[in-house]
Amino acid sequence: MNWIYNNIKLYKTHATIDANIIKPCKDTRLGIAKATFNKNEFGFTYTTKGKEFGKKFYLSLDINNDFILDFTVAKASIHESKFFDDLFISIKSFSKILLDAAYDSYDIFSKIKSSGSIPVIDLNKRNTKYLESYNRYVMKSNDF
């Protein structure tokens, strides 16, 4: 991947990590799916659409150049932030890292800052244990 950036003169400016659900069947067949599929490989997750069953596709992406830099697939019941460390390796040299509220934690924020990147993280309203100043910095970091 570094060969591409070095030889085609692409710039590492904006990157993200995110996940998406992969559903093996329609929601109307969820009862059958639950009984049929291996529970060690598939799982349930709660999204804005409600409870969903399947696997998740976790990826790191160069936003400006539309490159998938790294990815992994796991059961949907595993939270996105559990894969942050593995996927962060592929994007830590980017100048700005954009993440959704699933990654709103002080540990992730600190790791991005210590790599020299600017974190732009959506706020998780349920995350009330973090300092107000930390959240204010994240909100002000969205000047891209």
Rank of each mutant, 00 (worst) to 15 (best):
M1G: 13
N2P: 04
I4C: 13
Y5W: 08
Y5G: 01
N6V: 09
N6M: 13
K9I: 08
Y11A: 11
K12C: 14
T13K: 15
T13W: 09
A15G: 01
T16Q: 06
D18T: 10
D18S: 09
A19G: 11
A19T: 01
A19K: 00
I21S: 10
I21E: 05
I21F: 10
I22P: 02
K23P: 04
P24G: 06
P24V: 02
C25H: 03
K26R: 12
I32T: 07
A33M: 07
A33L: 07
K34W: 15
A35P: 08
T36M: 13
F37M: 04
F37K: 02
F37N: 03
N38E: 05
N38M: 07
K39E: 09
N40I: 02
E41H: 06
E41L: 13
F42C: 04
F42P: 00
G43H: 11
F44Q: 01
T45S: 03
T48I: 13
G50F: 14
K55Q: 15
Y58Q: 07
L59F: 09
D62H: 10
D62M: 02
N64V: 01
N65E: 09
D66L: 15
F67G: 02
L69Y: 07
L69C: 02
D70Q: 11
D70F: 13
F71W: 13
V73C: 09
A74E: 03
K75F: 03
S77Q: 14
I78S: 03
I78T: 06
H79F: 15
H79P: 02
H79V: 15
E80D: 13
S81Y: 00
S81R: 00
K82Q: 08
K82A: 12
K82D: 09
F84Y: 10
D85R: 04
D85F: 07
D85E: 05
I91W: 07
K96R: 07
I97C: 02
L98K: 12
A101L: 05
A101C: 13
Y103R: 01
Y103L: 03
D104Q: 05
D104Y: 09
Y106I: 03
D107M: 06
S110W: 11
K111Y: 01
K113Q: 14
S114H: 14
S115K: 01
S115Y: 01
P119H: 07
V120P: 00
V120N: 02
V120T: 12
V120D: 01
I121E: 07
D122I: 10
L123H: 10
N124A: 04
K125A: 14
K129F: 04
Y130I: 05
Y130N: 12
E132T: 10
S133V: 05
S133F: 15
S133Q: 11
S133P: 12
N135Q: 14
N135E: 06
N135K: 12
R136I: 11
R136L: 15
Y137S: 14
M139K: 12
S141V: 14
